[in-house]
């Protein structure tokens, strides 16, 4: 029984992992783009982007998932996401990517703006252009500064994936709950916690390693 449950939950956890990894893959670069937008000197770019960040950070992710999934059908009368599990997954992924990109963008913005002006000036008097200044001087200093807050968000994301359950996206909680109906047992649902714990433990180790790697400068 225990082996069966574990195998089933592992299958559910694959859904969790898929949502987790694809969200990261898309939201990190999108977050960087959004952060540049929110720091833009052009008001036509800056204000709409800051408005979107405000809305996304100011409303629950669960609500965003519901609106993302049902919204197009209800308000526009179109079947944007397609049918079945694939549609649910796409809608969930888009909602997660937008949500996390906004959080990441604020972390990036904080990191970029915390680099002292002297670094830019030193680069300028040495004749570096904007591109060289960003990639050779600023980027690594920013990465060092944002690793701890990013690791926080990433670990939150592991657990947030369970919210996709609200639009019936198949993941580990769903799988655990299934045993209540099919076998009348609740412990598999509780057991899912172990999977989350092990995975976030691994991530903690990974980020600890990265932080240590960047420890050689201050």
């Amino acid at each position: 029984m225990f082996t069966n449950v574990t195998l089933s939950l592992l299958e559910g956890f694959l859904g969790t992992l898929k949502l987790f990894s694809l969200t990261l893959l898309f939201s990190l670069p999108l977050g960087l783009v959004i952060s540049f937008g929110s720091m833009s000197k052009n008001r036509i770019i800056k204000f709409p982007i800051r408005f979107i960040i405000w809305v996304i950070r100011g409303t629950p992710l669960m609500l965003q998932l519901l609106i993302m999934f049902y919204g197009p059908g209800i308000f526009l009368g179109i079947n944007l996401w397609g049918s079945g599990d694939k549609g649910r997954f796409t809608a969930a992924l888009v909602a997660f990517v937008i949500n996390y990109a906004c959080y990441f963008s604020e972390i990036f913005r904080g990191g970029i703006q915390s680099i002292p002006r002297g670094q830019y000036e030193a680069a300028a008097v040495l004749g570096l252009n904007k591109r060289q200044t960003f990639f050779k001087i600023v980027l690594l200093q920013v990465i060092k500064k944002i690793v701890p807050p990013i690791s926080n968000e990433v670990i939150t994301l592991v657990k947030d994936t369970s919210l996709a359950r609200v639009i019936a996206f198949y993941e580990i909680i769903w799988e655990g709950e299934r045993f209540i109906k099919s076998a009348g047992i609740i412990w598999p649902l509780f057991y899912t916690g172990v999977f989350y714990l092990i995975f976030s433990g691994l991530l903690t180790l990974l980020f600890g390693y990265i932080e240590k790697k960047l420890d050689y400068f201050r």
């Binding site: 002297g118 000036e121 030193a122 680069a123 008097v125 001087i137 200093q141």
Partner: peptide
């Protein structure tokens, strides 16, 4: 401007070395 700057070297009060 980048080329013109090269006529001048600058040493800052706060050093501004690149930490990495």
């Amino acid at each position: 401007v980048r080329k013109n700057r090269r006529h001048f070297g600058m040493v800052f009060q706060q050093f501004n070395l690149f930490p990495q």
